[in-house]
């Protein structure tokens, strides 16, 4: 009996499609509701980012509740940046109590890259420890060994970056995440299929599901900005050139085309178990991308 719909889908062996939405800067959640309604039936699950890039926003947990209310399958992203182990455990308890069982465990970006640079970075735990924390709670005790009245049960995932700067060290961490109990991995944005294939050659030995992450680029400028400012991301020059070649205003369409091309290839090659689409602010184009990637109707 699967813990969640997502887990069920992951175990089914079918191609999994997830996406994510960024919550608003403010209390007005109409945008979130709009996007949830638009996407909830087209994908297997919707992630909500947790103050992505360390920019303060509406909480992931709140948006996940909205998804749940509107009949979607949420994936709660939790980072270690803002909460110590007390808050993290409480977060898991709360999520579980409200039917939110998919949790993506992340270390989180540094506060220095965000909009509250003076904030205290917490990092009481790291992502590996967070995964283990949830597994510990599932066993009926908290981190300090105290009995829990009602243990949570979760489908937990983690992130991995197949194009990271120094893969040897990344893979050590990947191993640790697998060992800690991660069931699925959402990769960082894939831009280099060769690198992704190399990663999959390694990852396929483990009993974990890999969802290839795709960022929908909207312009050459955005690609360049990501190269200079987003940790770990490197968009290759060919893609920047491809984006730069189109006329103004057509960048997003080009970005959708590029992402669709990648997704089709991955699926054709049977490289991994699914995809995770990151539209970063352009969530409305996700249906269009799914169509272009020939993923409409693939979902449940």
């Amino acid at each position: 009996m699967a813990t969640s719909l997502l887990e069920e889908k992951l175990l089914s062996g079918e191609f999994v499609v997830t996406t994510e939405i960024g919550p608003p800067k403010g209390a007005d959640v109409s945008g979130v509701i709009h996007h949830v309604d638009l996407l909830k039936d087209m994908v297997d699950a919707i992630n909500v980012t947790d103050h992505q890039s360390s920019v303060m926003r509406y909480p992931s947990l709140g948006a996940c509740l909205l998804i749940k209310e509107r009949g979607g399958e949420p994936v709660l992203q939790i980072t270690c940046r803002d909460r110590n182990r007390l808050a993290l455990q409480a977060e898991v308890l709360f999520a579980y109590s409200r039917g939110i069982q998919n949790i993506l465990c992340l270390t989180g970006d540094s506060v220095d890259v965000g909009d509250h640079k003076d904030a205290k970075p917490v990092f009481d735990l790291d992502s590996v420890q967070l995964l283990r924390m949830i597994r510990t709670m599932e066993s009926g005790v908290d981190m300090a060994g105290n009995q829990l009245a009602g243990a949570p049960k979760c489908c937990i995932g983690a992130s991995v970056h197949p194009e990271a700067d120094f893969m040897e060290a990344q893979l050590v961490k990947f191993d640790k995440k697998v060992e800690a109990g991660a069931q699925f991995f959402q990769t960082q944005g894939v831009f280099d299929l060769a690198a992704f294939r190399r990663f999959m050659q390694y990852a396929s030995q483990f009993d974990v599901k890999i969802l290839a992450g795709f960022i929908v680029l909207s312009s050459a400028g955005m690609a360049r900005y990501m190269n200079s400012s987003v940790p770990g991301i490197t968009v290759p020059q060919e893609l920047i050139d491809e984006l730069a070649a189109v006329e103004k205003g057509k960048g997003l369409a080009k970005g959708v085309e590029i992402a669709a091309r990648f997704i089709r290839t991955i699926r054709e090659e049977g490289l991994c178990h699914g995809v995770h689409i990151m539209a970063v602010g352009n969530e409305s184009v996700v249906p269009e991308l799914l169509a272009a990637a020939e993923l409409v109707g693939v979902h449940r």
Partner: peptide
């Protein structure tokens, strides 16, 4: 981030995502 189980995904060219002047500690450790 002071993390204990390996690098985050942030380093570029062996340097930290936050301070490009500083080498990633975890890559150095590895």
């Amino acid at each position: 981030k002071g993390i204990l189980n390996g690098p985050c995904a942030g380093p570029k060219k062996g340097h930290c995502e936050v301070s490009p002047d500083m080498e990633c500690a975890w890559i150095l450790i590895y």
